[in-house]
Amino acid sequence: MSGRIDRVALLAVPGLAYLAVIYALPLLMLLAKSIQTAEGISFSEYRAFFADDYNIRVLLRTLRVAALTTLLALIFAYPTAFVMSRAKGPWLTVFLVAMVLPMSLGVVVKAFAWSILFRANGFINSSLQWIGLTEKPVRMLFTETALVVGAANVFLPFMVLPIYAVVRQMDRALPEAAASLGAGPFFRFFNVTLPLTLPGVVAGSAFTFSMAISMYVIPSLIVGERQQTLSMLIARSFLYLRNEPLGSTISAVLLGIAIFVVVFSSWLARRLGARS
């Protein structure tokens, strides 16, 4: 019996070996390189990175933009997932197409479309002026708000789909049972519905947040060089400045944040899974 089980386990070897060599090993080598200097192991690159106010501002901006993007996407996604789980026929098709079709429009063109919309003479400004909300065009392109809106647009399907998957499988009878026992809508939501859907929220938020901290194309097209993010600093140090130690250090910082998000979210998911 144990021989057969071992044979099944062997099937994982090609895929895992591939990821170990072509993914984990290069990342470990990058981490090693960031603490290796001519004089041996040293954290001087990190000290230099964190001592610079500019880098701290970029780091905080990256985290803030990612958090706001995740929040905006969640506000849009959560009610939508519930509506989708109840929708039938042509309505369901409309929602599903809206989730998947935009993925066929590459992120480059999508971000560019948003940069057109946000221009001073762009569609949004013309609409605002036409409605009479503003007389002069509002400066939108190159602002953090524009970046958050554009990023939320790109990542929204990745927030909706995990929540939709959980909501669809949720036992509808539970909130109804709570209602029949006299629980009000707010009590039902916070004590029954929300805890049941939390695993989907955690999965979607972790995914959106980790994509938003490392996005590169979207900020390059919507905010440009004026407001750098960590990814833009990495690209600049490798592709333009040719400063590999600096690039490796920033990469290691970003990698650290990403690994933390992966570990923390899977821990949270397991805890939620164990509770329910």
Binding site: L27, S210, S214, Y216, G247, S251, L254, L255, V262
Partner: peptide
């Protein structure tokens, strides 16, 4: 969930 640029580098 890993930053693409970092994997690329």
């Amino acid at each position: 969930m890993m930053p693409g640029l970092v994997v690329g580098v």
